[in-house]
Structures are given as structure tokens and as C-alpha cells.
Computed example of a mutant assay.
Amino acid sequence: MKTRVPLALSLLLLGSGCTVYQSIGKSTGSFLHPVSGPDFVHIPDDEWNQKNALLYFYRTESQWAADEIEAPSVYIDGKHYFNIRNDSYTWLEVSPGERHIAMRRPLLGLEGMNSFSLSLIADGSINVEPGQIYYLRYNELSEPEKAHPDLDPEHPLGQGDLQLVTRDYAMQAGEIVSTRFLNSDLLAPNHAATSIVEVNEDADFEKRMEALEEERVLELERLQEEGKYESAAWYWPFGGGPTVPLEADRKIEQLEKDYAQLELDRERREELESGGGWWIF
């Protein structure tokens, strides 16, 4: 009965248009399901595109984590990908640029709604560069002995339970090299150890478009104040508008062209990967 309540509640909230954060059926902790994947190893360079970036997430071993009933969730740009259990690691190939990372602790799979979180463990953004590898360490009992030199001490991912660490630090004994791969299975499925570049690109497009639409509204208000805007006639409410071209419109048009080219490149890449089509004979 307890598992049905949060599921029904989440479905109700989803239907109402709210953003619900949940990992129902995916949050199984190490007390119930210890990680059993292979020991840590970097993925080969030819298995990810060097034009993108690679994020490694790992959680060092502790009795606290081993006794956990539910494991915390990891989100990239607002999308859930995995729940990280004791003594485990995984990775994600991401698009260059600003990536927002959040961790939430679930209660029966539910984690929050809109701006409210039951337990928000981490909430910060980092700018990732092409060809670079980043290591994010999670431990609720002990922080890294050394802070990342490229992060401001006040940066959200430079303090707290989830922190960005250097490669040298991650390669120490007892760190990522001592963890096991967070495999996906029926008891604790996840969507990690894969490329999420296209998801990132789509999210970046939507985010940029929203920003430009807001910029357009402000530009119209400014042009009205400067007298560069004609009001609609009383008998034709669909007329009127700015007397000069909008800079925001130019940016929106360019953004749409760039995104259309991106989609075309994806289609061409898929055709090449599939062998260029099919043959009926």
C-alpha cells in the first residue's frame, strides 16, 4: 500500500502541470541491493566524442551508505539519470557549456515538486569544456582533503557532500579507483553510462529561446519609450509594431537556423551509422 500512495500522488501532480522530482522504483539503496559491477576503469577514448565532455560521478565506501535503504538521485539540467549507491561510480557524456547538477534524497521515491525539495543535497552548475574529464565525488560523512583549485571556495560544488575534485585526487586509493560500476538492473535501473549530448543540446536550445523571448519583450518596451513603435489603429487591432528591426528577432532567427542545422547533422550521422539506408533485394 505504501508504494501505491506516492505513485498515485506523483501521477496526480504530473497531470496538474507541476514539475515532480521522483525516482520511484530506482532509489533502492545498498542495504537492499549492494553494487556488484566491475571495478573502476576509465572508458576508452574511442567510446566518447572528444568534442564533448565526460562527467564521472562516484561515491566512496562508508557504513552510512552501506546501510542506506534509499540512495540519492542525480539530475543533470533537471533530468533524473541515476541514484548513486555506496561504493559505486558511473559516467555521462555531456555537451560542452553550462551543466546544472543537482542531488536529491528521496522518501519512498518522491523527492520534491517545482522549487520544493524534501532534501536537496547539492545544487550547482559548472562550465564543461570539450575534451575534458570531470570527477564529482559524493560522501555525506567526509569532504575531500583538497579543494578543487579551479573552483571558488563558495561555489556550490566546491563545498558540501558533492564536490568537484581533480583527477589526481580521484585517482588516490580509497577514491574512485576503489569503487565498482553502478550497473543498471531490475532492482535499481538507471540511465547513466551513456551520452546525453542530444538531450543537453535540446535543453540548451529551449533555454536560449526562452531567454531571447524575454529579451524581445524588453526590447519592445525600450523602443516604445524611445518613440520607435507605432500603435495599432483602433479599427485594426492587429496592426502596429516597432519601426525598426528587432535585434532579438535576428538572434531568434539565427538560433532557429543553427538548431535546424543541428537536427540535419543528427539525421546525417544516423544515416552513416546505420549504413546509409536499406536495400530491398
Rank of each mutant, 00 (worst) to 15 (best):
E145P: 00
Y56K: 03
L9P: 00
L9D: 03
V128A: 06
R266D: 06
K26P: 00
G276K: 07
S10D: 07
D185N: 11
K26A: 14
L218V: 03
S178F: 02
S195N: 06
E225G: 04
R266Q: 13
E219S: 09
L12F: 10
H42K: 08
L141F: 04
G25P: 07
G277D: 03
E247G: 01
Q254S: 14
Q254T: 13
P38H: 14
E111H: 02
R266T: 07
R4A: 15
L212N: 04
V165T: 05
K79R: 13
D249I: 03
A102Y: 00
E267M: 11
R208V: 04
L264A: 12
S231Q: 14
S115I: 08
L13P: 00
I76C: 11
L54I: 12
E263K: 15
L108I: 01
W48F: 04
W234S: 12
G25N: 10
G174Q: 04
P106G: 11
L118H: 08
E247T: 12
A233I: 01
M1P: 01
D168S: 13
A65V: 03
A233H: 11
L7P: 00
E154I: 09
E226S: 12
S95N: 10
G227L: 06
S36V: 06
E230Y: 04
S117K: 01
K207N: 09
G160K: 09
Q159W: 02
S231I: 05
E154S: 15
Y21V: 00
A66P: 00
A260C: 07
Q163Y: 04
G275Q: 06
Y81L: 14
E175H: 09
F238D: 14
A8W: 07
L212Q: 05
G275A: 09
D202L: 06
E129D: 09
E140R: 10
Q63Y: 12
E61I: 02
A8E: 12
M171V: 01
Q159A: 13
N114Y: 08
K257H: 09
D185R: 05
N139F: 01
N127V: 13
Y138R: 10
V217S: 03
